[in-house]
Design a protein around this nucleic acid. Structure first.
Lengths: 146, 146
DNA sequence: GTCAGTGCAAAGCTTTTGCAGCGCG
DNA sequence: CGCGCTGCAAAAGCTTTGCACTGAC
């Protein structure tokens, strides 16, 4: 699935450029890092994991880039209930949700087509123009059940 | 639906007592306030809305009581993505989820049986012992669509 | 009388904002 | 070569913790 992730950071960069935004080092570093991730990551993880040319980027830039990406619908914010916001690329081909372990904090992705259909049907019955959704399951992971 | 909410604060109080916890003024005030709410409320809202005998309760007590309630499964934590945690009584008869307006921040509850069934089925396929879940839809409410 | 519960104040975290300077287009 | 992007540092929330005191049992 490497091709898909690579193309996300590229198409995201293009989308921002089309929106009239310039491309600086910090933004490129955040895009590259996010595109290389399997699942959601926190702002702090992006901060320590992303860098350009050996130099670290400012934490403020991380939050600013994430804000832009959110506004353009290029990333999805994920809130698993531990007080830190996580973010992941909005890949429509690999749409998924998350299970969180109450004991160790581990987060795993999962996907389910029937669940998606049920959500779409429920969303249609509300007085909202629904544009996105998020499902979080909580429980104990295999390791913590022992 | 008043009877249901009244009984929640009472049964929650009883549950805590059974767990060997004492019953102080702050805890009773938080329980009464939570039981009287229609939907999820933030810790700050509980702090300003709950009081006992004309005296306000400390914000620290609010968080401590919420922690106990969470540990005993008596409240559900709700995270709609604005950075503040919200809480509501865990009423198994009135289980529901939330829609959030991206524009004005409004939060509305909704429920859907087919959605619940889809979640249960999906949860059964994971290597987790799933004990709870949360669904958040995002979009524009009727007022903000104009 | 003992010890959990409480309130206040201070500390800890995540996230936001102000501002001077660099660098993309 | 102007204006947006960046980094640093300070500020702003929300939430947690320490501590002395109150009050439930």
């Amino acid at each position: 699935v490497v091709p898909a992730t690579v193309s996300w950071s590229q198409s995201a960069q293009q989308a921002l450029r089309s929106a009239g935004l310039r491309s600086g080092g910090a933004r490129r570093a955040v895009l590259d890092f996010l595109g290389s991730q399997e699942c959601c990551v926190s702002a702090q993880e992006i901060h320590s994991g992303a860098g350009h040319g050996g130099r670290a980027i400012g934490i403020a830039s991380v939050y600013r880039v994430l804000d832009e990406l959110l506004e353009h619908g290029l990333v999805q914010r994920v809130d698993v209930g531990d007080g830190v916001a996580r973010y992941e690329p909005a890949l429509h081909e690999h749409h998924h949700h998350h299970v969180v372990c109450d004991a160790c904090g581990r987060v795993d992705p999962f996907s389910d087509d029937a669940l998606e259909r049920a959500i779409d049907r429920a969303a249609g019955r509300l007085g909202y123009a629904v544009r996105g959704h998020e499902v979080v399951l909580r429980g104990r992971c295999g390791d913590c059940r022992r």
